[in-house]
Design a protein around this nucleic acid. Structure first.
Lengths: 160, 160
DNA sequence: GCGCAGAACGTTACAACATAACGGATTGCC
DNA sequence: GGCAATCCGTTATGTTGTAACGTTCTGCGC
């Protein structure tokens, strides 16, 4: 299992890759990757931190793309629905998908000091939990796996 | 791993056990198990469904215990902080702890049809995730593990 | 019992997060 | 060109959660 988010890396590649992937998927599936949706994904992709819907809305408003909540929420719904972004339930915030390739039941490591978020791919029916759920007769459709704590940098030097 | 919540059971025992346990823990640790806190725990314990803070507040208001949000949130904070209740992040709702004995990194199965919630005890550093997190240098302090889907009853007969 | 410190409470006010509903514009398709 | 479906912009409102302040209660040393 690998994580994305805490290591230094060439971030322009992250962004380019993500956008390109989204474009391709939309083309294949006849989804409309509209200007607003694209822009929201770009904004999310600028950072590996989770952003609130209203943070995004502020950005859109600055750019003259409309200033009311539904503008942001609709784009986010689309991105989340199709796996281009994820919602961090614990923070009521959104983040670009860090694994645009392949399927998805992501898990997140959230640093409570610097708000960085790392994402990992996760086996579809999470080891023990999936098995136990089936044992209980429960059929899992979606999972929320979020761990809060300190990332490598903040663990060493608090207030990084 | 076992779950609590979907099976039929003598619910008065659930409640009694939970309250008694909370009382004991508070006595041992010099925590004030005040009337409001106890009442909120009782309200939560009446059902294996998650309740919103404002649902609880309504109940408290009916009983003349104060009608402003902080009344409910303060009691809930206390209960969650000391492990007598949990917050279901996915629902922004709260539920009584179903495993008042022993330590805690709980996982939840949430039925999207009937809103029942089952809780399981979980190994402290969740199998693969904990290991991978340590590998990445991340120290986990708290986990949110929530699976949404259909419980045994709703899976068979939708709209139960 | 008295006085103090810390915790808990009640209330006002507000901040943050999210959606319903409507009409107009755009897109894909025949 | 016309139709259906989708998307967009806006108004309004609903839901969830906190900051802050003064009062009351509780535990505790005297």
């Amino acid at each position: 299992m690998d994580f994305v988010g805490f290591e230094k890396h060439d971030h322009t590649i992250c962004i380019g890759d993500l956008i390109a992937r989204a474009e391709a998927v939309c083309r294949e599936n006849n989804l409309q990757f509209t200007a607003s949706r694209r822009r929201v994904l770009e904004i999310l992709a600028e950072t590996h931190k989770a952003m609130g819907a209203y943070d995004i809305l502020d950005r859109l408003a600055q750019e003259g793309r409309g200033s009311q909540p539904p503008v942001a929420y609709r784009a986010l719904d689309f991105l989340v629905r199709h796996g281009f972004a994820h919602k961090i339930e614990h923070l009521n915030a959104y983040i670009a998908c860090a694994h645009p390739h392949g399927c998805h039941a992501p898990a997140f490591l959230i640093c409570r000091a610097c708000d960085a978020v790392a994402e990992t791919a996760w086996t579809p029916k999470i080891g023990g939990l999936g098995q136990a759920a089936r044992g209980a007769g429960f059929s899992i459709e979606r999972t929320v796996i979020e761990a809060t704590g300190l990332c490598p940098r903040c663990d060493v030097e608090p207030r990084a």
